[in-house]
Design a protein around this nucleic acid. Structure first.
Lengths: 213, 213
DNA sequence: GTGTAGAGAATGAACGTTCATTCTCGGAAA
DNA sequence: TTTCCGAGAATGAACGTTCATTCTCTACAC
């Protein structure tokens, strides 16, 4: 007589949710949130349409669940960054992993989520929280890197620099989504060079531009 | 005996097309391409749904027409740039006009168009052409600016720099669409500073980053 | 037997598009 | 001036389709 509920059951229910989310991701990348049908998702997940509703209340819930999952995965990857031995190397790895090595489908999904966020408050909240978390992590990473330098350098403002890096990252996402063969390497390198130089004061992008003087 | 067809007629037909496009723009910003209905557009334009089809073959045609119109307007604004007396000042004005002063709704529409472009070949073509045109103009602008400098400077590669600037512009668009109160000023300034410094060799973002050495 | 998982047909609302009909108005006829 | 005509502009109800969601029924586990 097994005293606990079958863990296999619970496991498989959770597995089924992720299977549905995986299927939804594929469909949403192919057709977008609004043109992908529940039939498409069901077929991709290898089950009937009705059965989807045993695991998600609605189509919107699937969309939100998917966004939440991806957001959490990326945030997780950023989470321990302040503990890295070489901060800038860790940052470089993070940038390459998410902006170059990640499948281009992620960029498409990202665009889709952004577009949805402009009019769906739930999605807007997810995007906002995500952006805040990453901004916070990058800011403290940069601040830490400045403090740890041999003679502590006071270059550009870490917060402004984090905003700048994120804007560049967003731009890279757009380009990847639009032309899958876009060479992200040079642009990522430019971002890394810029951040590195700005952090230790060799070049400050937060001054007023020449053409205004 | 009137030799030509009534020009008043033609004029008003053209006006009606732009009225429909204006209405569609408002609706698409509010609800997105796929959630905005033809009834919405018709109501916004102050006419009946059926009448829309006298001016556009289909909903898709309206979407394409709108994208085409906006693309052309921006391209037009970039068109004479090589002729400006102060090239960098002209570039600064262009950047401010399109990335800061333009209404935030344009950014939302832009996101919508990008998302659509990932799966609609017609929209993809429009975006691709637009991007090529702007890239070309920026490249030759930068090249010209280098050549014209007092002792001609050979800084970063103009083409790579144009790509970089466009990626940053795309990122700014994303941020504006997502949080309408985002302060674009500092980021635009950073872009201008960066381009200025890169053009005359004070700082080269196209070198391999420090963290790789 | 009882409860859970699943399938797949059914439902009903929403949407793009069509079309028969009405409206508007400039100009010819009287 | 008044009346009538015709053509294009516009209307809005209706149609066929699509799609999210619900319902009903079967099969298996315990």
């Amino acid at each position: 007589m097994p005293p606990s509920q079958s863990p296999a059951r619970l496991d498989s229910a959770e597995e089924r949710r992720t299977r549905i989310l995986d299927a939804a991701e594929a469909c949403f990348v192919r057709h977008g949130f609004h043109r992908a049908t529940m039939h498409d998702v069901a077929a991709e997940a290898g089950m009937s349409p009705g059965n989807l509703y045993r695991y998600f209340r609605s189509k919107d819930a699937i969309v939100a669940g998917l966004a939440e999952r991806d957001r959490a995965a990326v945030a997780e990857d950023f989470s321990g960054i302040e503990a890295a031995p070489d901060l800038m190397q860790a940052f470089t790895g993070l940038a390459r992993r998410h902006l170059a090595e990640a499948p281009a489908e992620k960029a498409v999904l990202c665009l889709e989520m952004w577009a949805e966020a402009t009019r769906n408050p739930a999605m807007a909240a997810i995007c906002r929280d995500f952006e805040r978390e990453i901004a916070g992590r990058l800011t403290s990473l940069y601040r830490l890197a400045q403090d740890r330098a041999d003679p502590p350098k006071a270059g550009a403002d870490p917060e402004a620099l984090a905003r700048l890096a994120m804007v560049m990252a967003d731009g890279i996402m757009v380009r990847r989504a639009l032309s899958p063969d876009f060479a992200t390497g040079p642009v990522i390198d430019a971002m890394l060079t810029l951040v590195g130089a700005a952090l230790d004061g060799r070049f400050d992008p937060t001054t007023t531009p020449e053409s205004d003087r």
